[in-house]
Computed example of a mutant assay.
Amino acid sequence: MLGDDDEEQRARAIAQRVFAVVSTKWGLRVLEEIGAGHHRFRELHRAVDGISYKMLTRTLRELEHHGLISRYDHGTANPRVDYSLTAAGTRLVTTVHALCDWSRAHLDRLLEAPAHRGEPFA
């Protein structure tokens, strides 16, 4: 059994690896699209503008590998695979949206910070 310090270090290490996957160009966008109801590969490809098939495949594998999405292969003659958020993935998307809410609540103050002055937003 892990001690409290060991458990905390392990949790931090896992969180850092998960954040590294989610903070890629496509990670969060794919998670959000799956959460919005786009569950099939082609649906996701159409929904995430600019992502290549190869990058979508890689992103889906990474998100699954880290326990944020689950993949269900229907095993039919015509290949059909669905993706869904796991409980951890759902909670992570909710947490990211809460961070966006925080940002909106403090936007005026944040825009005064040197890092954000005069920058155009895309």
Rank of each mutant, 00 (worst) to 15 (best):
L68Q: 04
V21I: 12
H65G: 10
I51C: 03
D5S: 14
R71I: 06
V93L: 05
T59V: 02
S84T: 15
E33A: 10
H65S: 09
V18C: 06
D49Y: 08
M1P: 11
K25V: 11
S52Y: 00
H65R: 11
A11P: 06
R71G: 01
L63A: 07
E7A: 14
E8N: 04
V22F: 03
R104W: 15
Y72C: 05
V48A: 05
G67K: 01
S84C: 09
G27Q: 06
R42W: 10
R10F: 14
K54W: 11
S23C: 10
S52F: 00
R104K: 09
A11W: 06
A113H: 08
E33W: 02
S23G: 11
G3Y: 08
R58P: 00
R12S: 13
R12Y: 11
R40C: 06
H74A: 14
L56H: 04
M55K: 08
I51H: 03
L60I: 03
R61K: 15
L85I: 00
H39M: 04
L99Y: 14
A36G: 11
H97Q: 13
D108F: 05
S103Q: 11
D6K: 01
L31Q: 03
L63S: 04
L68M: 06
R91F: 10
W102F: 12
R109A: 15
R109P: 09
L85K: 03
A11N: 11
Q16E: 10
S52P: 02
I69Y: 04
L92I: 02
A36M: 07
T57V: 11
G75K: 03
L92P: 06
T90A: 10
G35F: 02
S52L: 01
S103Y: 13
A113V: 15
V81K: 00
L28V: 07
A113K: 05
D73P: 00
L2N: 12
S103E: 11
R104T: 10
R29K: 15
S70W: 04
H74I: 04
H45T: 08
G35Y: 02
Y83D: 08
Y53F: 09
H65Q: 09
P79Y: 09
R29V: 11
G50E: 00
H38D: 07
S84Y: 09
D82K: 00
H65E: 12
M1T: 15
A15V: 12
A77N: 07
I14A: 06
W26D: 09
D4A: 15
R109V: 14
H66M: 03
S103H: 13
R91L: 11
S70I: 07
S84R: 14
R40W: 07
L107R: 14
T57P: 05
D4I: 10
A77L: 12
A15T: 13
W26S: 01
E8I: 07
W26H: 09
A11E: 15
N78M: 07
L111N: 11
G37L: 06
G37C: 01
T94K: 10
E43H: 04
V81Q: 01
R17V: 15
L92T: 07
A88C: 03
A47M: 01
W102K: 05
A87G: 15
H66R: 01
W26I: 03
A20L: 08
